[in-house]
Design a protein around this nucleic acid. Structure first.
Lengths: 216, 216
DNA sequence: GTATGTTTCAAACAAGTGTTTTACTGCCCT
DNA sequence: AGGGCAGTAAAACACTTGTTTGAAACATAC
């Protein structure tokens, strides 16, 4: 499937995906109606059921597109890391996700924040459909990342590692997905441009130091 | 207002609050209908509008009850900390929120997890109604906690402190509010009872170490 | 040019939403 | 006894939701 030229209107399918992901991140899944999506995408209401089958499938499709874009880039960074031979230091491992984040931020405005919010919502889902979907389709990349972390944290018991990985995920999702609210406060109170990359670069030493705490 | 005796049925108002907070945390605000709430509370549909005015006000009332219970306890712990005179070490400061968390966990089953999920939802709200409400009514307690953290982290620039406080909040909300999902995984994979307190006690050294990372 | 398969469109569908209305309790008070 | 009143009950309100329908428009093939 070729990239659509800039002159021609994007396909109905991607127009729906673009509109949906923005609204989902902004308001949540339940608070976003199909009519919100289709009117934002300038397509007919019925077209989402025609192309995706149902709202639930659309949500999954939105999530899948993000995951693919993110994991493809992360995969690339991880192979570079693995081919070094020598085990990497923690900050370097953490830094390897940065290009993937910045990448999806270039594809769409505020892409990384939207992705993080979707990730947060996916995790807070009671049923855990998406969490399962995520591990089934992209579990291998995440597994490789975990291994790098593990090698950089020698002597850490597996249980402790499990929890600390989720502590980290919480920090990242909460602050990077927290959206404009946090950034605006930071900018107002400290007059500092709070770009995605600058926040992420504050996160890295914070998390690296956290992971190296002695296990209780 | 006296505590209702165990024999008599709780007031309609608190029955609604109890049912609502559980459902809100489990499914979210929008996904929970008033009919879900009233049928779970065994009260009439109209009674929620009669007692609370609207669904939005009910949400706020649920949130307010949690905040009051939590901040009252935290207030108590903070005064104990402040009266020591000598500045406290970071782990001790962090540990001061533990009694407040455990307290609301005794008031209702899974209370802390529910509270954390509500907190997370409150923060991820686009409009930020609840965040504002929270700071207006309980900002003083949070301010005092921040000061204790600040004193335990000498030399940390204010901007850095701002972000790190939110990094911490993210970890706590995400993992403690993550609910049964994370605990079940931990229990299945590592055969370890994942109680609220044991997870919280893993969080403390993790966060303490994180806060002490050198500023970039 | 006609036939074929795909995509769009407006309209309708049944089900569920928050809220309001109206009548009907039980209860205290003078 | 009876008027005032906070609380409850069932029903209806107007509206939005996701989904389906059947016809129109489009493209592509022969």
């Amino acid at each position: 499937m070729p990239e659509p030229l800039a002159t021609e209107r994007a396909s109905t399918k991607t127009r729906i995906l673009d509109a949906a992901e923005w609204l989902f991140a902004e308001r949540g899944f339940a608070e976003t109606s199909l009519r919100n999506i289709t009117s934002r995408a300038n397509v007919n209401l019925a077209s989402v059921n025609y192309h995706f089958g149902s709202k639930k499938s659309l949500i999954q499709a939105v999530f899948d597109r993000f995951l693919r874009e993110f994991c493809d880039k992360l995969h690339h960074e991880l192979t570079a890391l693995e081919q070094r031979g020598t085990p990497c230091a923690l900050p370097q491992v953490l830094e390897s996700v940065l290009p993937a984040l910045l990448h999806i931020d270039t594809l769409r405005p505020n892409g990384a924040a939207i992705f993080m919010r979707l990730l947060g919502r996916a995790y807070s889902e009671t049923q855990g459909h998406m969490r399962r979907f995520m591990f089934e389709h992209y579990g291998n990349v995440m597994e490789r990342f975990n291994r790098q972390i593990m090698m950089a944290c020698p002597g850490l018991p597996p249980v402790e590692l499990f929890w600390r990985l989720h502590f980290m995920l919480g920090s990242v999702v909460f602050t990077l997905g927290g959206g404009e609210a946090l950034r605006e406060i930071a900018q107002a109170d400290f007059n500092e441009r709070a770009e995605l990359e600058s926040v992420a670069r504050k996160l890295i030493p914070f998390l690296a130091s956290a992971m190296q705490a002695p296990a209780a």
